[in-house]
Amino acid sequence: MEFTLGQIAAILQGKVEGDENQKVTRLDKIQEGKQGGISFLANEKYTPFIYDTEATAVIVSSDFIPTKSLKTNLIRVEDAYSGFTKLLEAYAMLMKSSLVGVEEPSFIDSSSQIGEQAYRGAFSYIGKNCKIGTSVKLHSHAHIGDRVQIGDNTIIHAGAKICADTVIGNNCEIHPGAVIGSDGFGFAPQEDGTYKAIPQIGNVILEDNVSVGANSTIDCATMGSTVIKRGAKIDNLVQIAHNVIIGENTVIASQAGISGSTVIGNNCIIAGKAGIVGHLKIADNTTVGANTGISKSVSKPGTTLFGYMGIDMKNFLKSYSIFKNLEAIEDRIRELEKKQ
């Protein structure tokens, strides 16, 4: 990456204070800035660093007023954090779009189709009758099973496994080691105490703009589809069981688990290590706290649940205020009993 400050200001719709012809080649933290780097100042805790940084330029908000002389150039934008985020997005897009072509060895079955501007990394595999869109990036050791469909601009990172019949939309990102479409956990108990596997003949559908974190797993449906709706974001090490539906723009943090046939609404937040049992319905805009267990459906939108059994947050906090003082309460009860 090499851009002049003037070019970056144009991307960010900002204004250069200094030499707009100077060039930058990388992104730096403001406290570690060196010549040729560009940083940003959005948190006032880091203000002292702007006077000493050696970065070629710093992105600042339009209302920033220096109290000492500066050695760096400024790019003023409406909001520094948003501006730097936009620059990161442009940089990431540039890096991704630069990957085009085929590394060998890699394999694609003759019955499958892949669009233009695609990238196939070494040891990637594409099975039979797949339909893969334009500008799709398949990194090394990515596995695409039979009859998979992948939309435009989707990225499958190294070692991710996309099992047969999975459908993935546009602008999705599947991080390393994720497994999409493996068999759901379906076993029928037998009279002799053993379990017999139930065939899982459904699939997984990921709609547009879905992100799936590293080493997360999404099981195929027993019948029908497990569905991750548009804009949902799934962190690393998350387990989503068969026939689950995850609503639009819902986010699920690391080590959470969603049991089979549960339906999660839109714009929900599921925090780390939360567990949700099967066959429930969780209303839109529900927040589930870290380590929370949900054992019954949530019907009221906007509910916040916290605690091992997932009770209403206000009730949990009231109960916890008593629980943490139990020892003192017990001592008071004993003293009262002695006085009787």
Rank of each mutant, 00 (worst) to 15 (best):
S321Y: 07
N325P: 02
K314D: 11
G302F: 03
L280M: 10
M309C: 09
N291Y: 07
E330Q: 13
D284Q: 06
P301R: 02
N285Y: 15
L317G: 02
S297R: 00
S319E: 11
S321T: 12
D331Q: 15
H279N: 11
A290W: 09
L336W: 04
S319R: 07
S299F: 05
T304W: 05
T303R: 02
G278D: 13
S299R: 06
R334S: 13
Y308F: 13
T286Q: 09
P301Q: 04
N325V: 04
S319Q: 14
N325T: 12
A283D: 10
I333M: 09
K296I: 01
L317I: 15
F306R: 04
G310D: 01
M313T: 09
G289V: 08
H279V: 05
I294W: 11
I333H: 07
T286D: 06
I329H: 05
I333C: 06
P301H: 06
T286M: 04
K318N: 09
I329V: 06
I294T: 11
L305F: 06
T287D: 05
N325L: 12
L305H: 01
L305N: 02
R334V: 14
E330P: 04
K318W: 06
S295Q: 07
I282Q: 01
K314Q: 10
R334D: 14
G310V: 04
N291W: 08
I322F: 09
K314H: 09
T287R: 12
L317K: 14
I311F: 00
I329S: 06
F306D: 00
I322N: 10
V288Q: 08
G289K: 06
I329R: 07
D331H: 10
E330T: 13
G307V: 09
H279S: 12
T303L: 04
F323Y: 15
I294R: 01
D312F: 00
L280K: 02
A328M: 11
L326P: 03
S299N: 09
F316E: 12
E327D: 13
E327Q: 14
A283W: 02
I282L: 08
G278W: 04
T304H: 14
I322Y: 11
L305V: 08
G302L: 07
K300S: 12
G310S: 00
F316Q: 14
I282S: 01
K281L: 06
G302N: 11
G310N: 01
Y308C: 08
L317D: 13
N291M: 11
Y320W: 15
T292P: 04
L317E: 11
R332S: 15
E335K: 14
L336D: 06
F306S: 02
L317F: 12
K318Y: 07
Y308I: 12
D331V: 09
E327S: 14
M313C: 08
Y308K: 07
D284T: 05
N325D: 15
K296L: 01
D284C: 03
G307Q: 00
T303N: 00
S299W: 00
I333D: 10
T303G: 00
